[in-house]
Amino acid sequence: MYLADEAWPDLESYFESESLALMPLGSTEQHGPHLPEATDHIIAESFARRAAEETGYLCTPTVNVGVSPHHRQFHGTMWADAPAFRDYVESVTRNLAYHGIDRVIFVNAHGGNVEHLREVGRRLRDDGTLYAIEWMWDESITDLIAETFETPGPHGGPKETSLIQHLAGELVHEERLEEARDGGCREFDETTGRVNGARTFYDAIDNTENGVLGDQTDASAEAGEKLFDAALSNLTGLCEWLDDQPAEGLFPKPHV
């Protein structure tokens, strides 16, 4: 069920019988010369809405702009300052608690949101409002990604390219895949941009001239479908697990 499609009287039965909601969050930021700036929020909304369809749980509208100042040098990137993002997401999530939701899955597709969603989840849990947990699609299928791509890259690489080829192929500039690979940073690992253990970079452009990492020519819609189905299975499983948890077990333990 997608909340924004429903008239308010038709939501009453959901809030009376269910207590879980999915909230998709992404970003509007550069993803290289070949992918749309909507990449992350397309991915997040696709996972959340499909999971809602398969499980019957509620999906909220998508938070389309995230914490993305590290991509600001590239045309069109939008971002929210981290404190404003946290406060906004917390406020919107509290709306759901008002209607009776006591557990939320932040269906996230942007790495820059992760730490901030964890902080929002802690705030809401610590004050007893509800239990919110962050889920990042690629972190749920790390082994499959490693098996599928030689150089997956953490941003705009073949894993995200493949997903968009699968979900919204008309938005992919297929003729620019080689340009993306050759003008970006093909190899990226734990040593990139680090000196004697210190992380020396702050922005994406510090490591990649065109904003992306990995080998985009290794992407395909077929690979994207495989990744999507595997991650979706994990998300629906997480929904069922969270719904089964007794409420008292989700909130902070008492002081010893």
Rank of each mutant, 00 (worst) to 15 (best):
S91L: 04
V92A: 11
T93Y: 05
T93D: 08
T93R: 10
T93W: 06
N95G: 14
L96W: 13
G100A: 03
I101S: 06
D102E: 07
D102T: 05
D102H: 11
R103W: 01
V104C: 08
I105Q: 10
F106H: 02
F106V: 09
V107F: 04
A109W: 00
A109G: 14
N113T: 02
V114A: 05
V114C: 07
V114F: 05
E115P: 02
E115Y: 05
H116L: 15
E119N: 05
G121S: 02
G121C: 03
R122F: 01
R122P: 07
R123H: 02
R125L: 12
R125D: 03
T129F: 00
L130W: 09
L130E: 09
I133C: 05
I133V: 13
E134D: 14
M136S: 15
S140G: 11
D143W: 09
D143T: 13
D143M: 12
A146W: 07
E147L: 02
E147P: 05
T148M: 12
E150R: 01
T151H: 15
T151K: 11
P152V: 12
G153T: 13
G153N: 06
G153V: 15
P154Y: 13
P154F: 13
G157F: 10
K159T: 10
E160P: 02
E160Q: 12
L163K: 00
I164G: 01
I164M: 03
A168S: 14
G169R: 01
E170K: 14
V172D: 13
V172C: 09
H173G: 03
H173W: 08
L177P: 01
E179C: 02
R181W: 08
D182M: 10
D182F: 08
D182Q: 08
G183Y: 03
R186E: 06
E190I: 07
G197F: 10
A198I: 12
R199P: 04
R199V: 15
F201G: 10
I205N: 12
D206G: 13
N207H: 12
E209W: 05
V212Q: 06
V212A: 07
V212N: 00
L213Q: 14
A219F: 13
A221I: 08
A221M: 08
E222C: 01
G224S: 12
